[in-house]
Simulated assay, not measured.
Amino acid sequence: MASIIEVDVEQPACTTRHAWARVPEEPSPSEREALKARIRTLLRERGAIMVSHYYVHPDLQDLAEETGGLVSDSLEMARFGRDHPARTLIVSGVRFMGETAKILSPDKTVLMPDLDATCSLDIGCPADDFAAFRAQHPDRTVVVYANTSAAVKAQADWVVTSSCALDIVRALRDQGHKILWAPDKHLGAYIERETGADMVLWRGSCVVHDEFKAFELEQLRRDHPGAKVLVHPESPAEVVAQADVVGSTSQILKAAAELDAEVFIVATDNGMLHKLRTLNPGKRFIEAPTAGNSATCKSCAHCPWMAMNSLRGVLEVLETGLNEIHVDPALIPRARQPIERMLAFTAACKRGEPAGALVPGIGAA
């Protein structure tokens, strides 16, 4: 049986105040192996492929890779699904990730272990409220984070991830664009500080990253003087300021592999620690603190909605075809365009080409 927990997702920019999440019951070791075996069989029989986010249960990360799928961030998951010949995608993550996969692969069937698995940044940025916010700033180029609904993406000029946001906003600034940013205020403020762009920020935040505490992080660093601090830029500025590396999930993975250190303090969802430890068996990874000394939980850095993904959920959708993601067909072309702009920009960067040439000047967008 799953239990229900309440989640505070207060966002000053809209009326959302709280939500809920289910906590799946962990299977026994024997049931876990039986579930995995049955899922492997059905993936083959159904011609399906799994894509999992770094923040979901280690079982789902491992199973995706073992069966030819992928563990990555949201846009890489969606791009992999688009390019893979499988006609059915099983997306272990949160709802906006399933929607993004459907936007890039509208002719494929996209299933999720639990359609109620959401994201505080997504639900804290309702499409109608965001449209009203945009109307207040008609002269600004709209840049939205991937952690948004299809309806919000359809209102954007650019969609970005945390790994490419700095480069894209810097290129827009160089072309004279003023930016309207949504939804994460911490990531937006970080980009604003680093690029000097003229930005107006939606005031959303991630329920996980928003809770990292600077004072307790200072104490933890004193306890581990040789440790390197890896921080996701959705964290508060006081936490980001203590980082040795600030970056996306993929950038954190790269830093952990390359930095000459034995101990790392990691300020992102603790689901990330599985991949970090798997790839770096000789190194130690410690969760950054999300609560003070009086708290009963010194670090509870895990998204409650990511935790809703489970082996039982994957098996159920493979057996029944339930929990299919649908996106309004009228939204798909409009939502795909800002994603494709981002993908073209990042592809040019990887090829060593001048990606800034892909950013139009004011009046040419």
Rank of each mutant, 00 (worst) to 15 (best):
E6Y: 14
A13K: 08
T16Y: 05
R22L: 15
E33V: 10
A37F: 12
I39V: 13
R40P: 00
Y55A: 04
P58E: 11
L63F: 06
E66W: 10
R79E: 14
G93Q: 07
G93M: 07
V94N: 14
S105M: 08
P106H: 02
D107K: 01
T109D: 13
L115G: 10
A127Q: 04
F130W: 11
A132I: 02
V142P: 00
V144Q: 05
A150M: 04
A151H: 02
V152M: 11
A156Y: 06
T161N: 08
C164Y: 14
C164H: 13
A165D: 04
L166M: 04
D167K: 13
L172Q: 02
H186K: 01
L187W: 00
A189I: 08
V207Y: 05
D210N: 13
F212R: 04
K213E: 00
A214L: 06
A214R: 01
F215Q: 10
P236Y: 02
V245P: 06
V246A: 03
S248I: 01
S248Y: 03
L253W: 01
K254A: 15
A255M: 12
A255E: 13
A256R: 05
A261R: 09
V263N: 00
I265G: 13
I265C: 12
V266M: 11
V266H: 14
A267C: 06
D269I: 02
H274Q: 07
K275H: 04
R277K: 06
R284W: 10
C297I: 15
W305N: 05
A307R: 15
L311R: 12
V317R: 00
V327A: 13
R334G: 08
R336T: 04
M342V: 14
L343Y: 15
A344S: 08
F345L: 14
A348H: 06
A348E: 10
R351G: 09
G356I: 12
V359P: 02
G363Y: 12
